[in-house]
Design a protein around this nucleic acid. Structure first.
Lengths: 187, 187
DNA sequence: GTCTATAGTTTGATAGAC
DNA sequence: GTCTATCAAACTATAGAC
């Protein structure tokens, strides 16, 4: 793994644990084992790092969603896998997904990063809408009235479920929050 | 309004816009019109301010919920009012509710504040559980299977809906996310 | 690419006069 | 209660040697 990739990997975990304002180049320096100045070589400004993080995250998740679509033909199964991505991202209830971590303090983020977040949300929404659309045909998710609204609700639900689970430091809060959605899945 | 109350009021908005790490005593000083040192008289440490903020917030919301319970006897109407609290808190999609704002970076918060957040979530969950329980009798919310899970899902949903709406800077994202829930309300 | 050294700000916090 | 003055520490960022 290149130094740049190690930096991104380490920084992502830091942001997901403590937020964008909550980590510094000094933290990164200590954890990665190179000097602060060297980090500036790879990412001249902290904003550059943040943007690279969000771009990498978006690409990763989109690839995950494409993989899920290929591996699973049933809408219900795809939805379960989607929820699982957010469940995994919680770790030991000490992390949020990067998108949620960034979404909390947008006022200190610049336009490019906000755009990247919005773009991610749009793509996730589109993928979910397709899933709910498909479920109307294959009947693997019950009570779908409006695919668009169901998609938006689903995205908000898993993100909010992360927040409450993290605050309570209890994965069961996540499970309780998504239980109703998962009960609609019949495969 | 006392200086202390003005400070709390101003600080709350700052936290909800920029997060706990994103605002400083210098910001507060400029907005309120007293010197930094004077703020330290009221709140010796920033943690003291944060704790006071979260306690005040919890008390306010609990009172709101009690008021709603008194004003409305139908479960569906109570749920609508609950969602409205979170809708209002969004402002012009530039703010989160204090609980969500704090939940995002718990690693930098001390134990007392985290306890206050957990306590708030527990109380909100209990109130919501009662609402869904009531709805089984008065039939003003449809498809209630497990009141406990429905409550957890509802809390996660409104909090997540705030996140996505704020990121998109579009109140419609909030509305789309809660549309499915509101469709279950029949009054 | 990584280092040392350092600039220039901002941060949370304190001492002591009024 | 609020002020001036000041602190030590942390922060982002840059210059220049290797």
């Amino acid at each position: 793994m290149s130094t740049r990739e190690i930096l991104l990997e380490t920084a992502e975990k830091a942001v997901r644990r403590r937020g964008y304002d909550g980590f510094s180049y000094a933290d990164l320096s200590a954890k990665v084992g190179i000097r602060k100045a060297s980090i500036h070589y790879h990412f001249p400004k902290k904003e550059d790092l943040a943007l690279a993080l969000m771009m990498r995250y978006r690409e990763t998740v989109i690839k995950d969603l494409e993989r899920i679509s290929k591996q699973h033909t049933l809408a219900g199964k795809r939805l379960s896998e989607f929820v699982d991505i957010y469940r995994q991202a919680l770790g030991n209830c000490d992390m949020l997904c990067l998108c949620v971590a960034f979404s909390s303090g947008p006022d200190s983020l610049n336009k490019d990063i906000l755009e990247e977040i919005t773009c991610f949300q749009t793509e996730a929404n589109a993928w979910l809408t397709e899933v709910f659309e498909l479920s109307i045909k294959d009947k693997t998710i019950l009570n779908v009235i409006d695919s668009n609204n169901d998609a938006a609700a689903c995205l908000a639900l898993v993100q909010g479920a992360q927040l409450v689970a993290r605050a309570a430091d209890d994965i069961m809060e996540f499970e309780k929050a998504v239980a109703g959605l998962m009960n609609r899945v019949k495969t």
